[in-house]
Write a protein that binds this DNA or RNA. Sequence first.
DNA 1: GTTCACAGTAAACAAGTGTTCACAGTATCT
DNA 2: AGATACTGTGAACACTTGTTTACTGTGAAC
Lengths: 206, 206
Amino acid sequence: MDAALLLLEGDRSFDSLSLREVTRDAGVVPAAFYRHFADMEQLGLALVEESFHTLRQLMRAARSAPVPERQLVHRSINTYVRYVRAHPTHFRFILRERFGGMASLRASIRAEIRLFVSELATDLSRFPNFNKWTTEDLQMVASLIVNAVVATTELTLDLPNHRPDEEAEVARLAERQLLLIFIAAPHWRSTPHPPAKAVRRYRESE
Amino acid sequence: MDAALLLLEGDRSFDSLSLREVTRDAGVVPAAFYRHFADMEQLGLALVEESFHTLRQLMRAARSAPVPERQLVHRSINTYVRYVRAHPTHFRFILRERFGGMASLRASIRAEIRLFVSELATDLSRFPNFNKWTTEDLQMVASLIVNAVVATTELTLDLPNHRPDEEAEVARLAERQLLLIFIAAPHWRSTPHPPAKAVRRYRESE
DNA sequence: GTTCACAGTAAACAAGTGTTCACAGTATCT
DNA sequence: AGATACTGTGAACACTTGTTTACTGTGAAC
């Protein structure tokens, strides 16, 4: 698994890796691969699991050590960006394979991301601003936030090494985007836009 | 080029396509490939160009036929989603290769997307809500919007065929996300969050 | 009517690919 | 001491890959 991640450090996508290539870098004969994985696909799935494991650790730590609400966005984004910088191979792998090659990898990555969205949604519901929101609206804003964070990850990974100033710049962009979203929260639905059809549909569930 | 796009219709990524495979599907001998492209990479770049060409057409049409501001978001999103549905191969290709394999493809795709962000930023500046915004803030909100649209594209491409109801559902999600952003517009910076460090930095450019 | 650029062909090349097989060392448990 | 699981080996298999070479039609230009 380490050998595969190492090969992915460059511009390669996972399904451009050959089994022989991986075993060569692992210092092992091709046939030995089958002692551990049935397939390159299984290797990929194991890497997805490993990668999200590190990310889940971060999330758990974030939840257990709550910060003053005022600086919450600022701190969260900065720790996140620093974390991405600390584990570039895993994040790059996930980002690449989210759309790239293997169907099973895509599926499992997206399932994990959907999970994050849902968890974020319930986290949000505990804040006063989002207190009375419907779960559907919470999911909506949570996915908006996750999209922004994913885009931030992308920018972070493209950063040249040893440039903390640019790192701060990326974090600042993300922070402002999230702040914009939070600013909207108190005004949502209390200022509902009146276009007939769209609004009528909102009410179907009531 | 058509043969390559056809091969990409499934779950394959572009750099898993072999030159021989493409020529085989094009009904031509491998060596004939070199009459048209020097490389698979050149083929890829040509496909990027072709794909964004169709997208630019949509954007131009959208700009030339302005809709009443009230329904602007609703209409724009719906035409966009329908457009993605009509050109799935091109959009899927772009989305895949945005992170996937070839470095040159990634670079040219991102350049095009950055262009869209900038154009959207200047479009936004013409609306009363965004009238007095700095260009930096406009870029920030434009990229937030583009992120949401890209995510919408992803969802749209995953839709099963012939399900206009789910298509409407995806469009509705995107519409609500954009509405949320627009709702925030009038309150941006007029209700600036006071955390010391972050806000101080905003002012560096003044 | 000849020239010329263009698109396609057939064959060959060295090299890399996934997978299989029977076999060997080695640590652990009984 | 012996059986049992693991992990790794080396050789072989049938294929696919990108690229080069000299050669062949074909339509348009002059």
